[in-house]
Amino acid sequence: MRIAPASIAMALGIALAACQTTGPPPVRTTGDVTAQPSAAAETFTAEGPTAVLWVKGLACPGCIVNVERQLNAIDGVEHFEVDLASGRVDIALSAENPASRQQLRDAIDKSGFTLDRIEAP
């Protein structure tokens, strides 16, 4: 057996460095997702009807691509904005042919995440 003490020391060093990272404590993101603040809600604008989806399981920035792919495939969606921290997805719907609740529900389903609830007209 060959054991490299330097390897173990390096690994422990990195682990300790990670644990000692300073900054504000992480925000607990479990529980009621609607309780989270949302920057998206403050910046999002739409002229026609809107919908808000609350999505759970968006573990990282790359997950947004999954949601984008599915929402972009719906004709009745004009544009949208995803707030990763809160899981809030603000959607501007087409005035003539707005996406239905079922279409929005299916889109989140196909993206591989859990839809907590929909706020839509």
Binding site: T30, V55, K56, G57, L58, S86
Partner: peptide
Amino acid sequence: RDDFGPTD
């Protein structure tokens, strides 16, 4: 799959 929070 158990999505138990916005990023969890």
